[in-house]
């Protein structure tokens, strides 16, 4: 792996709700090297967004609380930073892209003021320099006619254009790391292809790293160098992308891959994992996947499987994983 940029160790986050304590993130360890594109993939509610929020210090509190772990970014534990210091890091050194640009973009501000605001906050530039930079950023995310678009409001743009604006904002201060949470989920597939292509190119050009959150294994295959698979709040498998798709080790990863229908092959017999994900309020004591697992043995019911590291860049949490 490349030299580490972000090292998350033993992250734990809970949400205190009226139904009980939701264990949204449990012992999550994730590492991102310089220049790498790393994916976190998993089904709805498995804790992907909460992991990101915990890394960024954005867990809503209450009901949320990060109860343990370290978030080492370029040698500093982000969890020890003050609110003001963290705010400086966000945007300046770590850029963020969300699924729904409208929650991030201010509807009453022009595109120029939105991006300028970010620049004003973090960089020491004159007004003219800022304006020039905004136009340059829009050009970099391939917005046609940037001089016109800077004056428009978010609702006047299409979903794909808004996502480009978000990318422009995220890269505005040349961050070392970009975290994108389902950046293309709301987009049509031809527009998704444009945006993923753009993201890859920009990350490559800036020499930055990307942490990409998605539920779509196709997007992972197209974009990422390495992947973490999450299930019920935990990382259950980690591997370089080729290895994960060629020789998945965890029964959940195997089941997930076997149930995806692909546009490049027709299947007459469909495969499906039985059952559903467990409720994160009372996570089973043993392996959280035990109810749905074809490989489960007695121990899986009573004890959670530890992490087996298979190499520098791959590991699995399962008592009976495929060797």
């Amino acid at each position: 792996m490349a030299e580490a940029l972000l090292v998350v160790e033993g992250l734990n986050t809970v949400l205190n709700t009226s139904e009980g304590t939701v264990r949204a993130v449990t012992d999550v360890s994730v590492e991102i090297g310089k220049g790498e594109i790393v994916g976190i993939v998993g089904e709805s509610g498995c804790g992907k967004s909460m992991t990101v929020m915990s890394i960024m210090g954005l867990v809503p509190s209450p009901p949320g609380e990060v109860t343990g772990g370290r978030v080492m970014f370029d040698g500093t534990d982000l969890r020890t930073l003050s609110g003001a210091e963290m705010q400086k890091t966000r945007g300046r050194r770590i850029g963020m892209i969300f699924q729904d640009p409208m929650t991030f973009l201010n509807p009453v501000l022009t595109i120029e003021s939105q991006i300028s605001e970010m620049l004003r906050h973090h960089l020491n530039l004159t007004k003219a320099e800022r304006r020039e930079r905004v136009i340059d950023l829009l050009r970099r995310v391939r917005i046609p006619d940037p001089a016109r678009v800077v004056a428009s409001y978010p609702h006047q743009l299409s979903g794909g254009m808004r996502q480009r604006i978000l990318i422009a904002t995220a890269i505005s201060c040349d961050p070392e790391l970009i975290i994108a949470d389902e950046p293309t989920t709301a987009l049509d597939v031809t527009v998704q292809a444009q945006i993923l292509e753009l993201l890859k190119e920009i990350i490559h050009d800036m020499g930055s790293s990307l942490l990409l959150i998605t539920h779509d294994l196709g997007v992972v295959a197209e974009t990422c160098d390495r992947v973490y698979v999450m299930y019920a709040g935990k990382v259950v498998e980690e591997a370089p992308v080729d290895e994960l798709f060629r020789t998945p080790k965890h029964p959940y990863t195997q089941g997930l891959l076997a149930s995806i229908l692909r546009a490049d092959e027709r299947r007459d017999e469909l495969y499906a994992l039985d059952g559903t994900v467990p409720n994160l309020v009372d996570v089973p004591v043993g392996c959280a996947f035990v109810d749905r697992c074809a490989k489960a043995t007695a121990i899986c019911e009573t004890a959670g499987p530890g992490w087996t590291r298979n190499s520098d860049v791959s590991g699995v949490a399962c008592w009976n994983y495929e060797t």
Binding site: V189, Q192, A193, G218, V219, D242, F245, I260, R262, D264
Partner: peptide, 15 residues
Amino acid sequence: QALLSASPVPDPERE
């Protein structure tokens, strides 16, 4: 053709 080419398949080598 464009629609098909834009649909990601879960296979990095193919991608």
